[in-house]
Design a protein around this nucleic acid. Structure first.
Lengths: 215, 215
DNA sequence: GATAGTATCCCCACATTTGGTGATTGATTA
DNA sequence: TAATCAATCACCAAATGTGGGGATACTATC
């Protein structure tokens, strides 16, 4: 079974030399090379690659934007960024856009072949410095990854509904109208919420609800 | 210049075989092997390694907790997780604790040597499946990584102070007391904030302030 | 069949917030 | 020097939220 590869790079020499290199590998098949990504979705649909090598700097639209649109329409395609840039912004933007690997252009040849093979078998090849950046980033956003488990305040479903209305800025009246209950019922729920969250004002409720992701 | 390596693993055979393996590499120096991490900080201070190989499952304290305390006290040490576990929790916990690499135990020998060398030169070696997990995680928390740049509401410093008081649940009166200004002045600031944020209630202010990280 | 919990509703009195309009001072800037 | 803006303070009237009661109906669950 052949591995179908497409290449997006605005530099003709690079396209051709990568193409030549990959053709020497058994089972690798270069099914398309493109100098820009303006028609990338059509191009990709046309040549139907398993893996895409994507440069970043290209005329008209960047490779990062291309990753986003391609993954949006063809999520099964694996995309390997291959670029000279290693600034945080471009690295993380690429990854968030959906790239499955990121290698730098400085040391080509065998590394590239290994990277493609790694990608083929479910890995995510990254140049060493990129991998380090990624791990450091993970650590710096660890609060988003491992949210310290929010205490459970045992809010009832209805109370949670009311709470989320409050967080959306609705007044008691509006909540009453929204949930088809009376103003006084809203008050009852809010009182309960105050008790359960140990707070004494709407602002505290909202702050606590958002910060502890209760909503 | 030698590379000093310490090994934490509760399995004696593994400690010894890794130790033997690493001793065959020029410039590698195994400076300590330990069967548990209960005294890890002392152990590490004692043998002063550049790189630590850390298993996860050990008696008394897990390798992940050990990473946390070691990195807390000796942040310059590079720690390479080396384990059989590849569940998301342990992987991300290890990384968030401060590990600089994560490789699986199934394919030892040369891979391990390469990983240590990669770590030595500022990389973050990961087994392919681990790297994939990490990239996927990055994508799933992309909102935390690339917060869509909050619009600037041109709040004055004083207004920001008042705003953060509001977010902390203080009433107008309390804010007045806190900032040594009159109740009416607080009101003026709040009115301005309402205008600038285009909202009409405290709850909306608080929600917007927190969600858009204005505070 | 008693108990506990949820969801619904009501009243009173008081506190707080809100929407107006308007004013003074000092600093910065055009 | 005139204009702008931040920061301060004031008053009025109306709307909204808060704290304390209490009540009913329905579901579970023991």
């Amino acid at each position: 079974m052949n591995l179908r590869i497409a290449i997006f790079d605005d530099n003709k020499n690079i396209r051709e030399s990568i193409s030549l290199l990959l053709r020497t590998v058994p089972n690798f098949q270069v099914v398309g090379t493109f100098s820009h990504v303006l028609d990338c979705v059509d191009d990709v649909k046309e040549c139907n690659p398993d893996i895409i090598l994507m440069d970043i700097e290209m005329p008209g639209m960047t490779g990062i934007e291309a990753v986003k649109v391609i993954k949006g329409q063809l999520p099964h395609v694996q995309i390997l960024m291959q670029t000279v840039f290693e600034d945080d912004d471009r690295v993380f933007d690429s990854i968030c856009a959906g790239a499955s690997g990121y290698i730098l252009k400085n040391h080509l040849n065998t590394k590239l072949i290994d990277a493609i093979k790694e990608l083929q078998f479910g890995g995510s090849p990254m140049s060493p410095s990129i991998a380090r950046k990624v791990l450091n980033k993970m650590q710096s956003v660890s609060s988003a990854i491992k949210p310290e488990e929010a205490p459970d305040y045992h809010l009832t479903p209805r109370e949670k509904e009311v709470l989320s209305c409050l967080v959306n800025g609705l007044s008691y009246k509006m909540i009453a109208a929204d949930l088809y209950i009376s103003y006084e019922t809203v008050r009852s729920h809010v009182k309960k919420i105050y008790e359960k969250l140990h707070v004494a004002s709407l602002t505290e409720v909202v702050a606590k609800a958002i910060n502890q992701r209760i909503v």
